[in-house]
Amino acid sequence: MSDRSLTGKILPLLAAATMLLAIGMIFFYLPEMKGESGEVLDSSFRIFYFHMPIAITSYLAFTVVFISSVLYLRKGEYKWDIVSRSAAEVGVIFALLVLITGSIWAKATWGWYWIWEPRLTTSLALFLVYVAYLLLRQAVDVPDKRARLASVFGILGFVSVPLSFLSIRLWRSAHPLMFGEAASGSGGGLEGASLQLTLLVNIVAFILLFASMVSYKMGNEMLEEEVNELRSSLK
């Protein structure tokens, strides 16, 4: 119990501190962005330092869902089901935030909130897959069966994570690629220590935020299990 309350306090505090630092770095530490021909870029680019860490965090969340689903099916221990349902719910929020921050940025740079191209479509599909996962959980009443079927879906759904990640590398896409090479030859572009440091701090901040949200959610779910157990023992 002391262990739980310890991580329950330190983790959120750490997340809050890093998040403040990360936001501060975005607004005060980052130099002005220069385009290829030397012109100063619109500061709407700064939303990228939220957008990409959130995207990475949502991939991480769905990886957690996948791993704990496999572990549940193998071991049959209920705690893994709690992990996967907590990570899935938080992951859905992050997947939605990816779409929202991306749309805001797209409006500023492309002039439209949304265009239909592979990266955006697969990101939307990723969000929908895990919304469907939550719907599936609601549609089954028996806890045992719910955990089992949801685990199967969590494994199957994970197959669409790599496609969303790879889509800008596979197809010619309007979505900018910041690291690595695209199939069509363009790519890269984020250079300079201060930029990469800001990005790194932001990634760490969002992962800590994710971890503390999941730990809260798991605590809630465990309490709910306890309540259910008590209630059924009263009958």
Partner: peptide, 25 residues
């Protein structure tokens, strides 16, 4: 999978379509 659930006819397309997108595209 959906045969075991309450709302099977509705749930199947909702689960199926986003999952098969990597095939459909």
């Amino acid at each position: 999978l959906t045969v075991n659930t309450r709302t099977r006819e509705i749930l199947l397309p909702v689960l199926l379509l986003p999952l098969v997108l990597p095939v459909l595209i």
